[in-house]
Design a protein around this nucleic acid. Sequence first.
DNA 1: TCCGTTGTCTACCATTTGGTAAGTGACCAC
DNA 2: GTGGTCACTTACCAAATGGTAGACAACGGA
Lengths: 188, 188
Amino acid sequence: MLETALTGFAQRGYEATSLDSLASELGVRKQTILYYFSSKEELLRGVIGYATAELADVLGRAAAPAGGLAGAADGHQRIRAIVDSVFRVGARRPELIVLLREVSRLGPSASRDLAASIEPLVAQAVGALAAVGVDPVRSRRILLSAVAKVVGLATEVEVLRDLGVQPDRGSLRRRRRELLVFLESELV
Amino acid sequence: MLETALTGFAQRGYEATSLDSLASELGVRKQTILYYFSSKEELLRGVIGYATAELADVLGRAAAPAGGLAGAADGHQRIRAIVDSVFRVGARRPELIVLLREVSRLGPSASRDLAASIEPLVAQAVGALAAVGVDPVRSRRILLSAVAKVVGLATEVEVLRDLGVQPDRGSLRRRRRELLVFLESELV
DNA sequence: TCCGTTGTCTACCATTTGGTAAGTGACCAC
DNA sequence: GTGGTCACTTACCAAATGGTAGACAACGGA
């Protein structure tokens, strides 16, 4: 149900996705949805929580040492792991990325929910990074910047396509490197 | 009227902006809007045309020689002028940028209108660049990339803010330089 | 066996939405 | 003056939307 709502909100937008349409996709009546979520807005909150949990899981995995203690591991290497993981999320689960954009579009109310949902999970990832000697303030900014940059990048590619320019493979790789440079510059 | 609809669609989204609300903002009845635009969708087309005209005007000004013949002027310099002009548009008229994102969100139908609206105006700017010796194919890609990149960047900043990170002045300047590097690399 | 809980449904409802039909006054050409 | 066009209005309407109220069956424990 959360999955269906997630793809619905991401693909067609929040307002344009009616409870009825979601219900029929689920093979169920609208009231069944309202049984679990007392309003459409709360369903959105649920979806935000669902999406951020998955996203934060990815971030956490990338931020935490791969196996066993890593000692004074390289911060740069870890940053790269984070960026790549977010990139992969964008490729494999674009809905997650698009939902973030949608939430920011929906204004302060939804944004607050997003911030609240993601906060503890980011804090955890920041903790993992701190364990290998990365400054907490910086690592937080880097984590969130990586996510925001991927959202912006996805938007850029989409707009470019709509303007009639098909993105080639090379430009995407260039963008990834560009993004790494930007984030690593924040590490200094 | 187009101006009101533009800010409405950009700020609250297309679906969430009712004809009634626009009408009341205009101090007029809904049917007055439908007198000039036979449907909401056509109003959107009108707004797209209105916005792209303004945007293309900016692009055209930046692409055309500032005054008199420029001879074999520097392509890089012109690229910089274009990027800066698009940046300024983003700062002064964010609605234009946000509308582009909104259009891409609304799917193929709206996107086609956007592409159709912007095409002749871009062609003109490409012509102006060709006059100073820039390859047409490249200049087209650079023009559209600049616009798309600014849209993506605006999205990124917005998402980052929603995640609780306030962007500082320095990061914006860094982004501008980053963007210039990217576009100039396409020139080679 | 009976009861309360849980999950889903049918039946409605008020409101909003985009859109149609028809009217009205102002102005302008003849 | 008269006819016609223009700009805008009032009066409606069908459909869709989010949401409420309550029925109904299944099921598990006392």
